[in-house]
Design a protein around this nucleic acid. Sequence first.
RNA 1: GGCGGCGUAGCCAAGUGGUAAGGCGCGGGUCUGCAAAACCCGUAUUUCGUGAGUUCGAUUCUCACCGCCGCCUCCA
Length: 473
Amino acid sequence: MKVYNTLSRSKEEFVPLTPGEVRMYVCGVTPYDFSHIGHARSAIAFDVIRRYLRFKGFRVTFVKNYTDVDDRIIRRANERGVEAREVSEQYIAEDQKDMASLGIVPPDVAPKATEHIPEMLRLIEALVAGGFAYVVDGDVYFEVRRFPAYGKLSGKNLEELLAGARVEVDERKRDPRDFALWKGAKPGEPAWASPWGPGRPGWHIECSAMAMKYLGESFDVHGGGEDLIFPHHECEIAQAEAVTRRTFARYWLYNGFVNMGAEKMSKSLGNTLNIRDLVQRHDPEALRLFLIGTHYRSPVEFTDEGVRERARALERLRRMPLEAARLGASGAGGPDGGLPATLATARAAFAVAMDDDFNTPQALGVLFDLSRTLYAYADLVGRGERAVQPFVEGVSVLVALANALGLLERTPAGAEGPADVRARVGTLVRERDQARKRRDFTRGDALRAEIDRLGWSVEDTPSGPRIAPKTGG
RNA sequence: GGCGGCGUAGCCAAGUGGUAAGGCGCGGGUCUGCAAAACCCGUAUUUCGUGAGUUCGAUUCUCACCGCCGCCUCCA
């Protein structure tokens, strides 16, 4: 299996530190607002990576943090006249709901920065003791010059960084490139006691401290959105490796951004694409299919039409298990038409695609190829020309592969609707069936229209009507 | 200015030094009371942004150019 490692800017053979086991850390959100489409993409990208590693048989330890102390949280809290903690706790809860709605497997550990102050203090103390950090009026800064490897992840050198006009000059820092490990308390800000007086941690130190706490000084995968490469992860590496002198994370994986095109995410009017709104108007699995239809490292342009298009494609896959249930009961025998061999080929092709830096678009191509093969086979089963058992097995293969991508895991939430509607649909379907038997098609079509209005579709098959809640679109 | 990426059919999107997966859409057909779903056939061979080069051969490598985008201490 190969993965693209940003550290080396190349695809590398993936070899975990401990055979059969993968330890990974992904940067989570700063909870000061609802999570948005960009967070969804990152979450889904790493969810797929995690699921596939599991599918391959690795034992995966997955850590995703919450940065629950931050300028934006404090600002939001001040606006509302509440404690910062109240803001962060609220949006952590909202994020967890959103992640669940997207079918994200919860992390094994979801550490919060504020609950790891002692770990951070210990790390900062070690950096100060080692001569990598210095104290100025209650602030502690990392001295970038003392860590020559600074820049190795982002491909920057120290001179270029100095040339960058956007570096804010702070006279108290020995070098403009130095960054804060600890910020002395200002009035109205949350603060913790430290050897340098009350204050709060800098942005980067939490991830170094928490990753090492839960995954060890050296672990396999560190990921996040590509914007985190610099400065965040560059600083994490400096903080950790200066102290441990060991490789912090070995493979650095980044997802690309979601672009909004003309409809830029404007905070002004209603088109902020937060996950809460998105799953209102789209099937979450269609959204997932849309996002993984582009390779995780490439930018993707979000459009509602694009998601609706994927919803239609998703239907092809969703019908597969229904077809298996319908035909499976027949127990029909016959030749297998070489289907078992095709299934093995599909499995292998899926693995080839995913083993190549998680090439989900290619893997999806394999799934759709397989579904067409299976439907064609199903037609022959319907005509009594093929055995049904290989088909049922084929569908279970398809579902297993789809599950490795987080697809076909569940029906859309609430798609079945309220029980009374369900009962009403059932009645109408029976009435329609009887009308059709009388060849009263006018009545039958009217009933179908009514069923349609209730949000269900009815299709006639040789073995009777098949009903399903309408999804997608 | 520095670093990096992208430009493939109507739309989305993989991919390979030897002549282009898949999805959506569209056209034709089979099936159906009609549909729907499914299946079959077709849908980039003056071609993979433009020009030049390397090569027996390039969409795939090199260079230039055009267009678009990301990062350079808010940011998934």
